[in-house]
Amino acid sequence: MSSPPGEPRRIGYLYILPALLVYGAFLLYPLIRAVHLSLFEWDGITLGKFVGLSNYLDVVRDAGLRAAFGHALVLIVFYAVLPVLIGLALATVLQRARVRGLGFFRTIVFLPQVVAMVVVAVAWRHIYAPDGPLNAVLGGSRGWLGDYTFALPAVGVIGTWFETGLVTVLLLAGMARIPAERYEAARLDGAGPVAEFFAVVLPAVRGEIAVAVTLTVIAALRTFDLVYVTTSGGPGTSTSVPSYEVYHRAFELGQVGSAAAIGVCLTALIFLITLGVNRIADRGTA
């Protein structure tokens, strides 16, 4: 890291001030307040009762909350694991083949990333409907999102749908930077496509994989809009996830302290994952 161009200047504080004020008031202060609120049992109206860390213990003790975090784990498989595996395979093949129209393909598969999640949810709710396109193809009449067994995987598949494009584009960019000599060297050593993948491609895109995993895992943990519009956590609680529980508890059940504690846990989890994944990727390249 180089030092910034320019001399020491106090005026810097003045330039930062507007950003810092709005950021401090509407992001940092609320985070501190979330930690504060999480120590109380409060219905949002009457006087709160200090309960210490009880709301945090509930994340482990409360079966409903444990289930919500469990559902988030399932979603991580659909949002992160599957897209990274599919993206790796797809990007490797396309990069090797140097097919035409790759630019257009990139534009298309990235498109789901820019469509509002509510619009995505409306589209998929229709696809999964008892009289929708999916059943028309499969010849059944199952209400996928109303089914205790299938609702969570059905939501997960939507995640796979919109994350695969992002991951593929990210990996394609990484693979395009691999110098041709490395492939040639591997081929001179007699490496086939599979050996080449493990010896050349995979090590070269470690950083991109780390970024892809971080982004998609965080997206899985922050699934709110999609669940709110498609299932509202149902049927029963079979698709309730931590982000949805934050909203549900704070604004529908009047368990503000518990909601704040879940929010704080989510934040901590996201920080740990970001730091952890980056550290693993760094160790790999060192």
């Binding site: 992001l27 609320p30 931590p242 934050v246 909203y247 929010g263 934040t267 996201i270």
Partner: peptide, 14 residues
């Protein structure tokens, strides 16, 4: 990195 879920609860009540 901060998720909206964490801040929206205290923000609303404040």
């Amino acid at each position: 990195m901060m998720p909206t879920e964490a801040i929206v609860v205290p923000l609303y009540f404040d």
